[in-house]
Computed example of a mutant assay.
Amino acid sequence: MTTVSGIRQALSVYAQQAATRLVRHSQVARSLTAFAGTSHWHEQKHYPSARVRLPFPTADPVELTRAAHQLLPQIQDGTRYARAGLMLTDLLPADTHLSLELFRASHEDASIATLIDAVQKKTGGREVIGLGYGGLKPGPSWTMKRDMLTPRATTHWGELATVRA
């Protein structure tokens, strides 16, 4: 990707996926780090990052996307970015922390992340529903390279290592 809008799209999709995972595991996050980077072998190296302390512990995709987009002012148009991503830290169980009504976003009570997760499970696809760039159909113009993906032998039964003697 070489444009700010391309990185915005990637961060939006990743924030929505992160919110879905938080809901699925009954967690909320208090901090988000967004990053992007050029290839290590490219002559023009650029590795911007932004760490954002969320206003309240949340799994809301709107808040996570808003926080992830704080990286965008550091993105340089024309620079070829090879990677972008998000890290959620300072995780808490969702049921142990309820923020005061005064500090909650008005849309937080709508449980948007739970709704998106339920629709995606029922329909069997991520591209069916989403917020902004996260809801694109047929999906973003870019895709992650999965050609050389390492087998996930410790987390997926179908990819368990087989040893023959």
Rank of each mutant, 00 (worst) to 15 (best):
residue 91 L to W: 08
residue 143 T to D: 07
residue 34 A to D: 02
residue 48 P to N: 02
residue 45 K to V: 03
residue 147 D to I: 03
residue 82 A to M: 09
residue 122 K to L: 09
residue 154 T to C: 11
residue 161 A to F: 10
residue 42 H to N: 11
residue 30 R to L: 08
residue 58 T to C: 06
residue 133 Y to P: 05
residue 134 G to M: 05
residue 27 Q to K: 13
residue 156 H to C: 06
residue 159 E to I: 04
residue 139 G to N: 07
residue 49 S to Y: 12
residue 7 I to S: 00
residue 14 Y to F: 14
residue 24 R to N: 10
residue 157 W to S: 04
residue 12 S to L: 04
residue 71 L to H: 03
residue 99 S to Y: 01
residue 160 L to G: 04
residue 136 L to M: 13
residue 80 R to I: 11
residue 135 G to A: 06
residue 65 T to N: 09
residue 92 L to M: 13
residue 123 T to F: 15
residue 53 R to L: 13
residue 125 G to R: 12
residue 68 A to S: 15
residue 111 S to H: 15
residue 81 Y to M: 03
residue 35 F to I: 00
residue 165 A to T: 11
residue 12 S to R: 03
residue 146 R to K: 15
residue 6 G to E: 14
residue 98 L to P: 03
residue 143 T to L: 05
residue 2 T to E: 12
residue 53 R to K: 13
residue 10 A to C: 06
residue 13 V to K: 07
residue 154 T to I: 08
residue 50 A to I: 05
residue 30 R to I: 03
residue 130 G to S: 08
residue 70 Q to K: 13
residue 68 A to E: 09
residue 9 Q to C: 11
residue 165 A to R: 13
residue 66 R to K: 11
residue 24 R to T: 08
residue 127 E to S: 11
residue 44 Q to F: 07
residue 50 A to N: 10
residue 121 K to P: 00
residue 145 K to E: 12
residue 80 R to D: 15
residue 36 A to D: 02
residue 29 A to G: 06
residue 124 G to N: 12
residue 3 T to V: 02
residue 20 T to F: 02
residue 13 V to S: 04
residue 26 S to C: 06
residue 161 A to L: 15
residue 34 A to F: 01
residue 150 T to L: 09
residue 156 H to S: 08
residue 39 S to C: 01
residue 148 M to P: 00
residue 50 A to D: 06
residue 19 A to C: 06
residue 80 R to E: 15
residue 118 A to Q: 14
residue 74 Q to A: 14
residue 41 W to S: 10
residue 29 A to H: 06
residue 11 L to M: 07
residue 104 R to W: 02
residue 101 E to M: 08
residue 2 T to C: 01
residue 88 L to D: 07
residue 11 L to E: 05
residue 103 F to H: 09
residue 1 M to V: 08
residue 117 D to A: 13
residue 57 P to V: 06
residue 93 P to F: 11
residue 22 L to I: 03
residue 109 D to W: 05
residue 160 L to F: 13
residue 60 D to C: 03
residue 33 T to Q: 12
residue 155 T to C: 12
residue 88 L to W: 06
residue 45 K to H: 07
residue 92 L to R: 14
residue 52 V to R: 00
residue 124 G to D: 12
residue 3 T to H: 07
residue 76 Q to F: 01
residue 149 L to N: 08
residue 92 L to V: 14
residue 48 P to E: 01
residue 23 V to C: 02
residue 20 T to H: 06
residue 58 T to W: 08
residue 119 V to A: 12
residue 151 P to E: 07
residue 147 D to C: 02
residue 5 S to K: 11
residue 46 H to A: 04
residue 147 D to M: 05
residue 17 Q to T: 07
residue 112 I to K: 02
residue 108 E to A: 12
residue 11 L to Y: 05
residue 50 A to Y: 04
residue 76 Q to R: 14
residue 142 W to M: 09
residue 5 S to L: 07
residue 45 K to M: 01
residue 37 G to Y: 00
residue 109 D to Q: 12
residue 142 W to A: 10
residue 8 R to A: 13
residue 100 L to A: 10
residue 15 A to L: 05
residue 164 R to T: 15
residue 33 T to D: 02
residue 70 Q to F: 05
residue 130 G to K: 06
residue 2 T to P: 00
